[in-house]
Amino acid sequence: MKALVVYESMFGNTEKLARAIAGGLAETADVTLSEVSAAPSAAGFDLLIVGSPTHAFGLSRPTSREEAARQGATPGRIGLREYLDHSVPLAGLAAAAFCSRMDKAMSGSAARKSDKRLRRLGCRVVSTPAEFRVSGMTGPLLDGEVDRARTWATSLLAVSTHGDRS
């Protein structure tokens, strides 16, 4: 199994999650981890995992990345939204989405937005969107979230080869 983990991170929290997810997948899969600005092709992979921080209740936009930069973030030149909009055809590819989001009821979910995009692109989504909590806009991740991300990743390996779980 070849897995590609593509992430967008502003303050480093989503990157930590992506690294934990890649680590969990690497137990039994060949894993490539890439920051979204590198715009890696998903061609030749069996599983695509995408992750981003939640911005303005969903995926980042150029304006929300500019605002994050004013607050000390280091956004990439593109976000996950643009990556998915310009990816090679993804129809049939096993996929799943995760995000970091504030630990508040009204913070939205980039993972749910990514999940919808993956489905529209024809991906075979193998998990409900995973949301990992940060204590505030800049973090840090809440205790246990990195371990929970790694565990989530290992669960994806079984379902990605045995059908849709969503």
Rank of each mutant, 00 (worst) to 15 (best):
R101E: 06
H86Y: 01
E131K: 11
A111S: 12
M102P: 03
I49A: 11
A91Y: 01
R70I: 05
R65D: 10
S127Y: 14
E131A: 12
R112H: 15
E67T: 13
V88D: 09
K116A: 04
S100E: 02
R112Q: 14
R77N: 14
R81E: 10
R112A: 12
P53I: 06
K113F: 10
L121Q: 03
T128C: 08
A130Q: 09
G44F: 05
A56E: 09
L80K: 06
A130I: 07
A43N: 13
S41F: 04
D46M: 08
E82R: 07
Q71M: 11
R70F: 09
S109Y: 09
M106G: 13
G58L: 07
M102E: 15
P89R: 07
A69L: 07
L118R: 07
L59C: 04
P53L: 08
S60I: 07
G79T: 02
V88C: 10
R124Q: 11
G76V: 05
R120W: 12
L90M: 01
A91T: 08
R101G: 01
K113P: 00
P129Q: 09
E67M: 15
K116F: 06
F45Y: 13
T74M: 14
L59Q: 03
S127T: 04
V50S: 06
T54K: 01
K104I: 14
G92D: 04
A68K: 02
F132A: 11
R70H: 14
